[in-house]
Amino acid sequence: MKLSTVKELLNAKVISGKEHLGRDVFSACGSDMMSDVLAYVKDQAVLLTGLVNSQVIRTAEMMDMVCVVMVRSKWPTEEMIDIAERADIVLMTTEYRMYEACGQLYSGGLIGEAVRRE
């Protein structure tokens, strides 16, 4: 699924990284606990979260994720936007709550591979 489709399905507003909306993604994960995100390795993932701090973007960067979606209309800090821009991570915000946002992407076809631990 292209990130532009992620944006459409979530009716999201893109805050940074508009130029990367043509990228393909194959899986996503939703969590407010960054250590849980770090425990599972997937490729080309999207991170959905309701957490607002710089470590959200760093976690995505460490995991080679290409997109962070903030749910419940959360808005990132300036530092988060800055880190995302430097790491070429697309940052968007959606009005959907976590459960609904994940459901939209899953039913839209972003199913991804089964969870695997390295």
């Binding site: 250590s35 470590q55 959200v56 390295e118």
Partner: peptide
């Protein structure tokens, strides 16, 4: 509340 402290840090370090 900042997204860490779930008791996954050291196990993750060992895992990777």
């Amino acid at each position: 509340s900042l997204g860490f402290g779930a008791g996954m840090g050291l196990p993750n370090m060992k895992r990777y």
